[in-house]
Write a protein that binds this DNA or RNA. Structure first.
Lengths: 371, 371
DNA sequence: TTAAAATTTGAATCACCCG
DNA sequence: GCGGGTGATTCAAATTTTA
């Protein structure tokens, strides 16, 4: 499945592969403005002091790997500054980034994102339904992690599949707090000894929501701290291309095997609920041109308080106002704006019918006979 | 109720009073190592641009007060550095601080806390049960704010009333995410015109949990951004002493009146703080995200007459229909409504199993570990 | 008087295309 | 790049009004 396509000038993107080595060097080897989304789960700089034991004296298998050790905040900040700089260079102008962390590192990442000109869109809380309890009763159960979602710069046109996320949430808009279980059971990858292959493997459900919400099929997703490849696996399932970067050979090996066993969902399943904004624009005048409404015909406001006349050029005229369906509606309601399509009705057989019904008819025809 | 006690050397603490003026000057006028807990709700530096209207065209009453305006991140950082420095000087060696903020400012506060040698104990997420929605469908509903709880330094013996919090949480240890409603109704203070007295009044339930958890009766609690005095009111109710600092005379006036009407150990108010637990809603999309059902998988109607496919966003697609599990079921049966949970089954080992079984599984998980 | 329906409101970095 | 026109967009809870 490895591919080298979507070349940008002289350099091609190593799509659907895992690069080895230092993530900053690897990122700098890729062409600028070439990535749609970055998901980054960097070392958390945990600063654990000594071992932690449960009440039964069993030892907690803490994250004490060498890669998570930084000598100081300054060292961690330098690392953060460098990889975020490399990441920003890679992003397309309308690309975006997600970073995930805990209170140990997320404030430093968030501040650095802002310092570099990234524009924060949301912070999203992953609320774990089954976190590890606080065994000593000295603090609150650490039951969440924080993600930051940011565009490359202020004003960028980031991807946000609002309707798809709303559908995922059964018709209510998605909030900034996501309740999802941690990665356990069959999904949790094991090494040859049967121990967990990676200490902080993220659940696929988390990446599913991130990728459905902020990418489209065919987008290129980069994960500079690939680990055992959750980002790549979910990207592949969802029909996105991925690039992983991972320093540790053991993690790369587990990820390669995982990806080989991952299958893309079928095409139909990848279609998601689309926004109305994606529908083709229909000028109101077309209803008049097509004879669906006649010049001189009356339109009635949704609240029944206003009556206006259609003119031959597709504008409306009322007692003291004329203009487009939107302008006249806004003026009559004293509102800053008005969607004329849903505001006005015409009379058919004595009954009021919203003019939006006529727009639907035209759109249906367009779908049948494109052009 | 004003008192001047607990003198420290030559300087006495102005207990249970509201100091006027700039919070940094006021803090510097107080004796060092004298405060048990600081709760700080500083300006968030929202940087709002134009107006925002709801879909019904009503205008959102934005937080555009002069006190929330900063010229740059650098200016905001300088402000943060200065007040956190002054605050740290005031704290007793075993004292602690809480700060609250949103993604606009909380990362900068968190980083500065760490830089100054404060030791972060938890970040706590206030999940709002009734947040303002995202009206334009451009981002996730901003449904939470973040609090950081930190001791004066690493190794300090901070106060944590584990058992009291566990009791507040129906016998389960308190987690780092708190579901509480925003401040509305009778609790929301009004000015002479009947408008809200302060744009960002915090709910007493939030402060109740903070003060029960991290102070003891008789402790001195300082709030350098006192506003309309929620911290003071809850402190008084709980038998803690408070010191407030507030720049705006209008807020001080409202707070003084509020405090005069507040009584210690107000049973009724304590009841209010107990949060209601609602029946958990499980969106169908979560079954897809969690991998319990896979995009592309078939669902079968209870009568065996219909077969549809699951999509990645948790909607269904049939021959000529798509939508939620409920919408598609209703359409296929020609019914006005349909409970998709009981209407659809999936196949497991060749046998049809109602999807409601999967919902029961998730509900069971949630019931095991409530909140 | 009571229940139901309608209205109000909340720390918000909240369009996009075309000429 | 700028200005103007089109037209898409909300959830929970408290309060007020209507039936």
């Amino acid at each position: 499945m490895k591919t080298m396509t979507k070349s940008k000038g002289a350099t091609a993107l190593p799509l659907n592969t895992i690069l080895s080595g230092d993530c900053i060097d690897a990122m700098n080897s890729l062409p600028e403005n070439s990535i749609d989304l970055i998901f980054a789960d960097p070392p958390y700089n945990l600063q654990l002091k000594g071992d932690l034991h449960r009440p039964d004296n069993s030892k907690v298998d803490a994250v004490d790997d060498e890669w998570d050790q930084f000598s100081s905040f300054a060292a961690y900040d330098k690392f953060t500054r460098e990889w975020l700089t490399a990441a920003r260079r890679l992003l397309k102008p309308n690309g975006a980034i997600w970073v995930i962390g805990s209170y140990h590192n997320v404030f430093r990442m968030g501040a650095e994102l802002q310092n570099q000109g990234y524009w924060i869109l949301n912070d999203v809380v992953w609320r774990k339904s089954n976190p590890m309890p606080n065994f000593r009763g000295k603090r609150f159960t650490n039951a969440h992690e924080t993600m930051i979602w940011a565009s490359k710069s202020e004003g960028a046109k980031y991807t946000f599949n609002y309707e798809a996320l709303k559908a995922l949430n059964e018709g209510v808009q998605m909030r900034s707090d996501w309740v999802l279980p941690i990665c356990t059971g069959h999904e949790r990858l094991k090494d040859e000894n049967g121990d967990k292959a990676h200490p902080t493997q993220k659940p696929e459900s988390l990446l599913h929501r991130v990728l459905v919400g902020s990418t489209n099929p065919g987008d290129v997703v980069l994960d500079p701290f690939f680990g055992t490849g959750t980002t790549g696996a979910v990207a592949k399932m969802l029909g996105r291309d991925f690039i992983g970067i991972e320093r540790e050979a053991a993690y790369r090996k587990v990820a390669e095997k995982r990806l080989a066993n991952t299958r893309k969902f079928d095409r139909e399943a990848l279609q998601v609920s689309a926004s109305k904004r994606a529908e083709p624009r229909v000028p109101f005048g077309q209803l008049v041109e097509r004879g669906m409404l006649r010049p001189g015909e009356n339109l009635y406001s949704i609240n029944g308080r206003h009556k206006v006349k259609v003119r031959a050029d597709g504008t409306l005229i009322g007692d003291d106002v004329k203009g487009s369906i939107h302008q006249v509606g806004a003026h009559l309601e004293g509102a800053p704006s008005c969607n004329g399509w849903t505001y006005w009705s015409y009379k058919q057989d004595g009954k009021k019918v919203p003019i939006d019904v006529l727009r639907q008819q035209i759109r249906a025809e367009m779908a049948e006979r494109p052009n």
